[in-house]
Design a protein around this nucleic acid. Structure first.
Length: 426
DNA sequence: TCTGGGGTCCTAGGACCC
DNA sequence: TCTGGGGTCCTAGGACCC
């Protein structure tokens, strides 16, 4: 059975989410910043035209944006996650063979013979998403996921916003115009390696030697190249798999020196990661704590990490906070200006396979701990995160990240609902 | 003043086993 | 004089993605 893949990608997703609720942002340079208002992570086409690159530190382009009457937003993840869900729910209506690839991308698979015109189908999807959610998208169609990705890049440049590479008389001509680092799976390191070996375009890559690729870029690289040749090697992944590692990490709004404040922040992040753990009904047997200063500053640098194997895997926040705090105490050195602390849970396993320790480590039973955590999670689910939180995470939280330009929670908070004003006509 | 956060997969090498 | 072969598991590190 011959199938084709369509890659749907939301255009400038975070910016588009903001624009849905504020039409005055159309035709203006708009950027959305990363956590802590650090770097640019989304740009409108007008901002791209000003030469603002993905990942540019905000302080380097602030003036340029201001001079061009641009608008800046801190990231508003609850808004973007909610809008993403709406897009995905609409996409699902077009095929059961559907993979959510990221917050703003999805792969759809179709049986080629079922379809009259792929290009037409693409346009129908695009119009429906626009009508239902207000988000503009681009669609690329190809015989493999990698080719669909390339088709999507081409679609973004076209007026229609869709492009079907299966329909093209000579793909080699198209691939000739694509630099090899634009191919999905080729990053900076491989780009350098390929360049050294005279491989500059996607077309060069397509005809590179298999044995050499296998040796230099592992099976992953070989898979990518076969996909360029039209042989599908990367299947659709429809099930959402449980995470194998869960991390929570944020840099501070201002440098932090004391162990006390670091421990507060770490407790806060540990509670966030533990909630994710419980959400997928897992427990963690191993935790890692990372600590580091600001590598961009000329001051003395220090970074360290420590791995700790728990006596018994758990998702119980108070226990995890206790272990994490003890780990932090071991790697903390006074006299440094710290920028970031992180927690990482590894070796994650389903809670139902939990191997209890022969010698119980706490007096509370598993059932008691579960009931307590369930109560905390449902309070926060109902009334908003941080409604119930642990005192270890502090009250003042002076280390908290900067978010100076946040928009409203238009779709997830009653008090922030957009208001439609009536106006007289005629 | 000011530089993000959260994941995946693969490989090489060492420890350990019989 | 002379010191095997084959396997598994774990970890660190490196590549990639959005």
């Amino acid at each position: 059975m011959k199938t084709v893949f369509a890659l749907v990608d939301c255009n400038n997703f975070y910016v588009s989410c903001e624009r849905v609720f504020d039409p005055s942002l159309e035709h203006r340079p708009v950027v959305v910043l990363s956590n802590n208002d650090g770097c640019v992570v989304a740009r409108s086409n007008e901002a791209k035209a000003l030469g603002i690159q993905m990942g540019t530190p905000f302080f380097k382009c602030r003036d340029l944006i201001r001079k061009n009457s641009g608008k800046v937003f801190s990231s508003n993840y609850s808004l973007y996650a909610d809008m993403s869900q709406r897009v995905m729910r609409t996409l699902e209506q077009f095929t059961p063979d559907f993979e959510i690839y990221s917050i703003d991308e999805a792969f759809l698979e179709f049986r080629a013979e079922d379809l009259f015109s792929l290009e037409q189908l693409g346009r129908r999807i695009k119009n429906t998403i626009r009508q239902h959610t207000g988000i503009p998208i681009s669609i690329g169609i190809g015989q493999t996921k990698t080719l669909a990705k390339i088709a999507n890049k081409i679609a973004k440049q076209s007026a229609s916003g869709t492009f079907d590479i299966t329909d093209h008389p000579d793909t080699d001509i198209l691939l000739e115009s694509i630099p090899c680092n634009d191919v999905w799976g080729v990053g900076m390191q491989y780009e350098k390696l390929l360049k050294l070996n005279g491989i500059l375009t996607a077309r060069n890559l397509k005809y590179a030697d298999d044995a050499w690729l296998r040796k230099k870029m592992t099976v992953m690289g070989l898979r990518t190249v076969w996909e360029l040749r039209g042989i599908s090697c990367i299947p659709l992944e429809m099930a959402t798999l449980s995470k194998k590692g869960i991390c929570s990490s944020r840099s501070f709004g201002k440098p932090v020196e004391t162990l006390n404040e670091l421990a507060e922040a770490l407790a806060d992040y540990t509670a966030i990661a533990a909630e994710k753990l419980r959400k997928q009904r897992s427990v963690a047997p191993i935790l890692q704590v990372y600590l580091s200063t600001n590598r961009f500053k000329p001051e003395p640098q220090y970074s360290a990490h420590i791995t700790y194997k728990l006596p018994e895997a758990t998702a119980y926040t108070p226990e995890l906070v206790r272990y994490a705090t003890a780990c932090l105490g071991k790697i903390y050195r006074p006299g440094y200006q710290y920028k970031k602390v992180s927690i990482f849970f590894a070796g994650i396993q389903p809670q139902k396979y939990l191997q209890p320790n022969l010698f119980p480590v706490t007096r509370n039973t598993f059932a008691q701990k579960s009931r307590f955590m369930n109560a905390v999670d449902s309070i926060n689910g109902r009334w908003g995160s941080n409604t119930a939180q642990f005192a270890a995470a502090g009250i003042k939280k002076s280390w908290r990240m900067r978010r100076q330009y946040t928009s409203q929670h238009y779709t997830t908070r009653w008090s922030d609902l957009p208001v439609v004003k009536a106006c007289k006509t005629g």
